Simulated assay, not measured.
Amino acid sequence: MNSENLPIVAVLGTGLIGAPIARNLHKRGFAVRAWNRSQAKAQALSADGIEACASPADAVRDAEVVVTALKDGPAVDSVMQAAAPALRPGTIWLQSSTVGIEAIATLAALAELLGLVFYDAPVQGTRQPAELAQLIILASGPLAHRDTAARLFDAIGKRTVWVSEQPGAGSRLKLALNNWAFALTHGLAESLALAKGLDIDPALVVDVVTGGPMDSAYFQAKAKAILAGDYAPSFSIANAAKDARLVVDAAAHAGVQLDAAQASLWRFDRAAAAGHGDKDMAASYLV
């Protein structure tokens, strides 16, 4: 532990979620090292007092906690394999990426092989909640080191839901929640697109919903973005398509028929094919 009795933390992946996670951990007094495949993104954190490292192994060397915030399961596996020679047995691994049920089993097995204490802890929330330390952490993992894990979760989120002692439960819950978020996104996008197609001002849909039982902060935020044509990514179409595919695959694995989830994936794929992959998932409206 460092002089303040806080663990040294390595954050692997400093994109829309990883960068604010690193900043918020640093603000709460943790010594933070960061690595990203695009080194400029990690270097950008140097101004905040965060040490940018040239490789995953450099980042995790002597770290007591590793946080992975990467695109998908194969990316997490590849980066942790690269970090493995510098990892010490007993290091706590907080896996915050959305990776699906197959990949989380692979990562848990890797953690066991390397002697790491593994927490499956995907986060609910996009760029803005991450920046404000308002993420919801969906955690599963052993009781033994939860106090340490909770100190980090409290630094990056407003709430931690402990789902199970067995890794994988957090990832399964995340898929169910993402399915709901995608349904809301497409439902709004298609309703506004239908209004426009019927020669009705889409803003009238928002006006009628506002203040009623169908209203929500999410509805208002995405509606505002669509009406303004502002698709700066909080969560991109490309990432949404990846996660929607994980939902469909999980449903098939569980033997649950999800017709809307399959349609959701098709719509995200169509938006990506139309060149909107780097835009916010509200760009579902454009297709």
Rank of each mutant, 00 (worst) to 15 (best):
Ile226Gly: 05
Ile8Pro: 02
Leu177Lys: 02
Gly168Asn: 10
Leu70Val: 15
Ala261Asn: 06
Asn24Tyr: 13
Ala133Leu: 02
Leu246Lys: 08
Pro122Leu: 06
Ile101Ala: 11
Asn2Ala: 15
Ala261Arg: 09
Leu114Glu: 14
Ala232Asn: 08
Lys279Tyr: 03
Val287Thr: 15
Gln220Thr: 12
Ala52Val: 08
Arg270Phe: 05
Leu265Tyr: 13
Asp147Tyr: 00
Arg172His: 06
Lys224Tyr: 01
Gly18Glu: 00
Ser38Cys: 01
Asp249Ala: 15
Val209His: 06
Pro213Ala: 09
Arg245Tyr: 03
Thr185Ser: 14
Val287Asp: 13
Met281Cys: 05
Lys158Tyr: 01
Ala272Trp: 06
Lys71Thr: 15
Tyr285Trp: 08
Lys196Leu: 12
Lys279Leu: 04
Ala244Gln: 11
Leu227Asp: 06
Ala121Tyr: 00
Pro202Gly: 00
Ala250Val: 12
Gly212Ser: 13
Gly18Lys: 00
Glu102Asn: 10
Ala69Ser: 15
Gly15Gln: 03
Leu116Glu: 03
Gly157Thr: 15
Ala223Val: 05
Ala44Trp: 04
Ala261Asp: 10
Leu16Ser: 11
Ala189His: 05
Ser234Gly: 10
Arg127Trp: 00
Gly125Met: 11
Glu4Gln: 14
Lys158Asn: 07
Trp162Leu: 03
Leu184Cys: 04
Ala181Val: 14
Phe118Gly: 07
Leu45Pro: 09
Val66His: 10
Ser171His: 10
Leu113Ser: 12
Ala149Pro: 09
Ala139Asn: 07
Asn178Tyr: 03
Gln39Cys: 08
Pro85Val: 10
Glu4Tyr: 11
